[in-house]
Design a protein around this nucleic acid. Sequence first.
DNA 1: TTTGTAATATTAACAGTGTTAAGTAATTTT
DNA 2: AAAATTACTTAACACTGTTAATATTACAAA
Lengths: 213, 213
Amino acid sequence: MGIKERKERHREDFKARILEAAKKLFVTHGYEATSIRKIAAEIEFSPTTIYLYYKDKTDIAYALHQEGFRLLRERFAVLEFVDNAFDRLKAMGRAYIQFAVDHPDFYELMFVMKEPMQYLQAHHPEEEWPEGERVFDGLIQTVEGCKAQGYFAAMPTEEAAMLSWSVVHGLCSLHITSHFKHIAEKCNHSISDPETLMERVFQVYVQVLERLR
Amino acid sequence: MGIKERKERHREDFKARILEAAKKLFVTHGYEATSIRKIAAEIEFSPTTIYLYYKDKTDIAYALHQEGFRLLRERFAVLEFVDNAFDRLKAMGRAYIQFAVDHPDFYELMFVMKEPMQYLQAHHPEEEWPEGERVFDGLIQTVEGCKAQGYFAAMPTEEAAMLSWSVVHGLCSLHITSHFKHIAEKCNHSISDPETLMERVFQVYVQVLERLR
DNA sequence: TTTGTAATATTAACAGTGTTAAGTAATTTT
DNA sequence: AAAATTACTTAACACTGTTAATATTACAAA
């Protein structure tokens, strides 16, 4: 019964082709502008064919969300070699911010938009967002390492990890929505662009943590 | 020539009526579900009539964004009477978080969605987001007060303010997108709901700042 | 009071969206 | 060869924001 397997493989190939087309449109024009019809046109199939492989548009959104997490984990991979936990925490923060700057559309899909998480909740209620947990576990371990070095003393690990996540996500989110741009222009040192401003704010966070030890 | 004034007043009344209908639909069904046609049906006018008073949908989005800032400033008003700057900073943070929890749709429109800021940039390029600046100025002053008390020592005021904003915005944003919910469930203390988790993370931030003095 | 004009509101339409039901063609199984 | 399954498409539904052309109304001047 190798036929069934071959068909299954073909099906997976087709899903990948659709996702590739979706990704191409998505990274160039954003999520909203990536319509089912345009994806279909890209792979030269009828729009309804998409629905034979993906349940609905949020299904595609979640697949792209997963793709985004693959990209993020790729960036985080090198951090394993940073032995000093606090250095690793700083590097993680900067890698996270840089990812958001380099791939704003992916970042939005992963951390700002509701669709992927809604899909997750609607169609896989038992699973608990594996992509997010994998990355968050890395952060937890790093924070634990920091605690061993004397940082975050007498503070709950998970809350400290979430604080660090909130800091960088807050920065990235406000940057992408161009809120920072509008605030930065008003500030005295209006020389600096939003990106270096983000870096400076992150530095302040690092400074704060350093004084904790 | 009081006629022109009366007409102008009527025009403003009508704009307010449209906005009221939009707000009603918006708070009950969210922004995406608030279509021009539904707003028109609500005030029993033709859909195209809306366009005589508002340029496009993002114009309405920005008007609601302003409405949201009025609500937020209302909540922040009482903070003026908190004399101790650090107490005020803590109260500001909690008021901000509570606002996001109580009015998630408004919060999204004000700090997550791109439409209002895009409208601002497209139609009023000279102005610099007055709503945001007013609130942010209050934060700046509070941070300056904290510095006088010894907090944020040797740290740039604006960056410290932005850090505090990023912390609470990160928390609110991750909460609204239900990212926290999915992470919280996995954590050991899965007893607590996302809201008390936010409070605990904010407490950690407060703790961190307290140790700085 | 009638008429002309300007303001205001409406209908119809365009170009698009996600999604589903029904139908067709090809392939595989009986 | 006939029947059944699979893969795909066409047509359609019910929406969306938005615009052009048209109708209605209100109001000032004759």
